[in-house]
Design a protein around this nucleic acid. Structure first.
Length: 281
DNA sequence: ACTATATCCTGTATGC
DNA sequence: TGCATACAGGATATAG
């Protein structure tokens, strides 16, 4: 599932492929990924033709592709969204939803999305600071992040710590995989109330999250199957380095106890029952 | 303001 | 073999 490192891998790939290029044609093969575009499918197509891409940007899991004017193409990969850069003659992937062709007749930009939780749309005036992400907090890679303020914000919450880590309005970019990995590294149970954790512990959790996402980025991101790939269609290798996520029944790399999977927020949480015991107060 | 839950979506894996 | 169900989990609307 694309979280911060995976989205950053995509951003880096697009930064190699798009700046300076002008859109000549847009084909929308399925309307759903364009549902957030205010003017509908036809307006999406006509609004984008003639635009010239500049350097792609990212906050958390949101990606935006600014144009040489003041607007931007907003994007979120959702669960299974992909950007692919492929030569015009090559076959379209099975769940290809939108295709951009260019005036230079070079490689096309293709938005592929099996489950279609993702989407792309035009953000008027969004080149620098898109209104759509005004409510999204800075991520752990952002140079402007105030770590002390973030620790305080997390500790002001009564919810379980994992809910808080997943709340993109508190800190962005962390999803189910890296939340579980950070909690494992910091030896914290996912349901510990955030306001019961010390500032040192919360800081340690954020450092752990930053470290695991940095390592994942260096390996090209985490992928279990063909659902998450880079712009060339290949997968990262970080799934081999995970300590807790997806390791139900396998030994904890630190103590050897079996990792357990538990239902949590309509998804799964993985933890080591010995290193991350439930806190009872 | 904060918190928790339902909802969207489809390919793959599993069970009977 | 065929059919039904569980599962993966992003952001957001809505209710409490």
């Amino acid at each position: 599932m694309p979280e911060l490192p995976e989205v950053e891998v995509v951003r880096l790939g697009l930064a190699q492929a798009l700046p300076g290029r002008m859109i000549a044609g847009v084909r929308v093969l399925h309307p759903r990924p364009v549902r957030r575009h205010a003017g509908g499918v036809d307006d999406f197509v006509t609004s984008l033709i003639g635009r010239q891409f500049v350097e792609p940007k990212r906050r958390g899991k949101f990606l935006w592709l600014p144009f040489a004017d003041s607007d931007a193409l907003m994007a979120h990969l959702g669960m299974s969204g992909q950007f692919r850069v492929d030569d015009p003659g090559t076959a379209l992937p099975p769940q290809c939803r939108v295709v951009f062709s260019f005036e230079d007749n070079g490689p096309e930009l293709r938005f592929v999305d099996q489950r279609m939780f993702g989407g792309i749309w035009l953000s008027p005036g969004g080149a620098e600071a898109p209104a759509e992400i005004a409510h999204i907090a800075l991520d752990l890679f952002d140079p402007g992040l105030d770590l002390v303020a973030l620790v305080a914000a997390i500790r002001s919450r009564k919810s379980g710590i994992k809910r808080v880590l997943l709340n993109q309005q508190v800190v962005s970019g962390i999803g189910n995989i890296y939340a579980d990995e950070a909690l494992w590294a910091a030896r914290v149970h996912y349901d510990t109330a955030a306001d019961q954790l010390s500032a040192v512990k919360v800081r340690g959790l954020l450092v752990a999250a930053t470290e695991v996402m940095t390592a994942a980025l260096a390996q090209g991101g985490t992928s279990f199957d063909a659902l998450y790939v880079n712009v060339n269609g290949t997968s990262g290798y970080f799934s081999r380095s995970l300590s807790a996520y997806g390791r139900d029944g396998q030994p904890c790399p630190r103590c050897g106890q079996g990792i357990v999977r538990e239902a949590f927020m309509n998804r799964s949480s993985y933890r080591c029952p010995q290193c991350q015991p439930r806190i009872v107060d």
